[in-house]
Write a protein that binds this DNA or RNA. Structure first.
Lengths: 174, 174
DNA sequence: CAACGCATGTAACCGGTTACATGATTTC
DNA sequence: GAAATCATGTAACCGGTTACATGCGTTG
């Protein structure tokens, strides 16, 4: 599933949305397993419109700038359903941290330790951001499946932080 | 760190290598945190050669096809060191499985359960492949830092498999 | 009047992937 | 003589990212 399928899925399951709102959902809820940005969202919405998958409606607002609201069309629903039944792709994981660890003998002891400390800091920050979004998410229509993806993130970050803290102790005692 | 930095790092830390050998190392050792392929390796080696980072040497073999052996040059070592000290990039994780789970209310109960079973199968297979490589890796110069990245993979797969098995039970009991 | 939140977009680039194409040598 | 292993490469494409560019309306 690509960016276009996620956008179609959001429009299908949550109703009409603006590019701005799609971005908010991606950042608040899907960020730990799919990274999106405006640079993906707006060009994709344009392509989806040109393909007849979604339609755009201009909405004037008094208290805020005007906006473009996108709704999914039946052709778009078909396309989304198709994507759901495509064979499951293996996860893509790329870790700059692990690449650097792999070449860790190029570092001094203190550099190596700082590398791990830094990664722990980042992962703890990731975990905190995810946890902070929980209340917001609950008030914004969180279902059991959303909770599944949330729990996955919590377990993943927790396991990795524990692992890294062990490795840090080992590295410090050498 | 990009593909080019990994190739430079391998040439620096393991000595001269062919594209074929680089691919073997990527598949056997780095595959769980960096996915590479010939389509990346050969064009990258060409660019590295054109930039003066590596040099190519043709080697004739009697028992096997001839090959091109690449060695790192001092300019390449500089480039690699530079990449090691660039700010740590956040991991990139993209999960087709979690995207489908996020939209899980589009599935029937049995489809949903099969989706989880399928992912467990894939993750167990990933884990097994990693474990199977351990002996081979040990006999091929595995250091403590390599072991670090191996352990990371084991912990990650183990945690996720346990998590998914719990969720599977829950899904079956609804 | 600055900072922030809301809102939309594009052009150039990138770091690859995918599919294809080829061929030697050895083992079964 | 088929399959496996060793070995190298390219052309077309892709799914984005990065950096830039703009502007309204509200809040402090």
């Amino acid at each position: 599933m690509k960016g276009k399928d996620i956008i179609l899925g959001l429009l299908k399951t949550r109703g009409p949305l603006t590019g701005y709102e799609i971005n908010e959902i991606l950042q608040d809820q899907l960020n730990h397993f799919y990274v999106g940005s405006y640079g993906m969202i707006y060009p994709t919405l344009k392509k989806l419109e040109n393909s007849g998958f979604v339609k755009k409606e201009k909405v004037s607002q008094d208290d805020k700038p005007n906006k473009n609201v996108f709704s999914i069309l039946s052709l778009g629903e078909k396309e989304f359903n198709k994507s759901l039944y495509k064979p499951l792709q293996d996860d893509e994981f790329k870790s700059d941290f692990l690449i650097k660890i792999y070449f860790g003998n190029q570092f001094s002891k203190s550099e190596f330790i700082n590398l791990i400390k830094n990664e722990i800091r980042i992962k703890k920050e990731n975990l905190r951001l995810l946890e902070d979004n929980l209340e917001k998410w609950k008030n914004n229509g969180m279902n059991d499946n959303h909770k599944f993806t949330y729990d996955y993130g919590i377990i993943y970050y927790g396991s990795i932080i524990r692992f890294l803290e062990n490795k840090l102790k080992q590295a410090e005692n050498i």
